[in-house]
Computed example of a mutant assay.
Amino acid sequence: MLHKNTLLFAAFSAALWCGISPLAQAEIVTSIKPLGFIASAVADGVTKTAVLLPDGASEHDYALRPSDIKRLQNAELVIWTGPEMEAFMIRPVARLPAQKKLALVTLDTVKPLLIKGDAAGDREHGHDHEKSDADHHHGDYNMHLWLSPEIARLSAVAIHQKLVELMPENKNKLDANLQRFEAELAKSDRMLANKLSPLKGKGYYVFHDAYGYYEQHFGLTPLGHFTVNPEIQPGAQRLHEIRTQLVEHKAVCVFAEPQFRPAVIEAVARGTRVRMGTLDPLGTAIPLGKDSYTQFLTQLAHQYASCLKGE
């Protein structure tokens, strides 16, 4: 009878575990994928990292499901940018104990590196968007912090500190992971600086004002941005305004993002000599792993170079 009960218990346990997704078991949950890149490098071989936001969803207007709430409650550590970026996380994160959450924008080391957003600049240029571009900033600063290699390094240091507090028995492995991340980041940074250096002075436009940290770090030369809502086809007058600015400013490229429909990009560039490119600020196709953040930075560099060089 004891053997039978043991078998029944084992079968019941297996059924329970099979019904739980890998994300539900994850000990670190990040709001968006690039933060998962950083966390997975620090936690490699120690604990799992998972991403809350599904590929293709927007961090600006995502609505949490009940299963997401459970994932946040069960996480060992929750990492997010902050309330100005992921408003959907404000309430559930507020209920978590302080040792189990980390908002990157609140780090004392990060605050001095914040750069101003350009929502005000949009309004000055008469860009009345269907969805307010202030949704991307919710304040004075650009919140796309993961696009700064230096902020990514400081974030890794903070994540490491949190994990050492939570898992002191893994301190040696976490120390080694952080050292490796910093070394690989420095090596990648030098390589990408060399790759992007010849592109300085080549003007371009982006649709989404997300790349300021990356552009500032590598000395790129954006001429402006058009925050066209990908869900709504711009009218003829708006497309004419954009085309006129592209020609007047002698732009080499205009960059979209994966969620923008190609028809919008083609309509903007038609009748100009401007090349079309794509930038992915979330690293959608990159899997989590110890090298994923440097892969993300490298992918962006290739995306800039392929259009600006005309490759």
Rank of each mutant, 00 (worst) to 15 (best):
residue 139 G to Q: 01
residue 151 I to E: 06
residue 221 T to S: 15
residue 216 Q to P: 00
residue 116 K to E: 14
residue 188 S to G: 02
residue 217 H to C: 04
residue 186 A to S: 10
residue 161 Q to R: 13
residue 168 P to R: 03
residue 220 L to F: 05
residue 130 E to V: 10
residue 146 W to C: 07
residue 182 E to N: 13
residue 193 A to L: 10
residue 216 Q to S: 14
residue 163 L to W: 05
residue 149 P to T: 05
residue 219 G to C: 10
residue 154 L to V: 07
residue 203 G to M: 11
residue 214 Y to Q: 08
residue 210 A to H: 11
residue 115 I to C: 01
residue 173 K to R: 15
residue 185 L to W: 02
residue 165 E to D: 14
residue 136 H to G: 09
residue 159 I to L: 06
residue 160 H to T: 00
residue 210 A to E: 12
residue 132 S to G: 13
residue 121 G to S: 01
residue 117 G to T: 04
residue 140 D to A: 15
residue 195 K to I: 09
residue 204 Y to L: 02
residue 162 K to S: 03
residue 193 A to T: 14
residue 161 Q to K: 15
residue 199 L to P: 06
residue 135 D to P: 00
residue 127 H to A: 10
residue 115 I to V: 13
residue 169 E to L: 02
residue 140 D to P: 00
residue 181 F to K: 11
residue 132 S to T: 00
residue 133 D to R: 05
residue 205 Y to W: 10
residue 218 F to G: 05
residue 175 D to C: 10
residue 122 D to I: 00
residue 190 R to C: 08
residue 121 G to C: 00
residue 150 E to R: 14
residue 180 R to N: 12
residue 157 V to Y: 07
residue 188 S to T: 15
residue 149 P to M: 06
residue 148 S to R: 03
residue 147 L to I: 04
residue 205 Y to C: 03
residue 216 Q to V: 04
residue 181 F to M: 09
residue 130 E to L: 10
residue 114 L to I: 01
residue 182 E to H: 08
residue 163 L to F: 08
residue 155 S to G: 15
residue 140 D to I: 10
residue 184 E to R: 12
residue 220 L to R: 07
residue 159 I to V: 15
residue 153 R to C: 09
residue 122 D to E: 13
residue 156 A to Q: 08
residue 134 A to E: 15
residue 175 D to L: 11
residue 140 D to E: 15
residue 180 R to A: 12
residue 127 H to V: 10
residue 153 R to F: 07
residue 213 Y to C: 11
residue 155 S to L: 04
residue 157 V to M: 11
residue 123 R to T: 09
residue 161 Q to L: 07
residue 194 N to L: 14
residue 177 N to C: 03
residue 205 Y to A: 04
residue 142 N to Y: 02
residue 133 D to V: 13
residue 219 G to S: 09
residue 149 P to Q: 08
residue 118 D to R: 14
residue 181 F to P: 02
residue 153 R to W: 08
residue 126 G to I: 09
residue 140 D to T: 12
residue 137 H to S: 15
residue 170 N to E: 15
residue 125 H to F: 08
residue 122 D to V: 00
residue 206 V to I: 08
residue 165 E to A: 15
residue 123 R to F: 07
residue 185 L to G: 05
residue 127 H to L: 11
residue 213 Y to Q: 11
residue 125 H to I: 03
residue 184 E to N: 12
residue 184 E to T: 10
residue 133 D to I: 12
residue 180 R to G: 05
residue 161 Q to A: 15
residue 154 L to A: 07
residue 222 P to M: 05
residue 115 I to L: 14
residue 169 E to T: 11
residue 115 I to G: 04
residue 153 R to G: 14
residue 144 H to I: 05
residue 195 K to V: 09
residue 166 L to S: 02
residue 203 G to R: 14
residue 217 H to T: 07
residue 197 S to W: 06
residue 119 A to T: 07
residue 137 H to P: 00
residue 134 A to D: 15
residue 190 R to P: 00
residue 152 A to H: 09
residue 183 A to D: 12
residue 176 A to R: 07
residue 205 Y to H: 02
residue 189 D to Q: 08
residue 200 K to D: 01
residue 191 M to R: 15
residue 124 E to Q: 13
residue 202 K to P: 03
residue 199 L to A: 06
residue 186 A to I: 09
residue 156 A to Y: 09
residue 207 F to Y: 14
residue 216 Q to N: 15
residue 198 P to A: 04
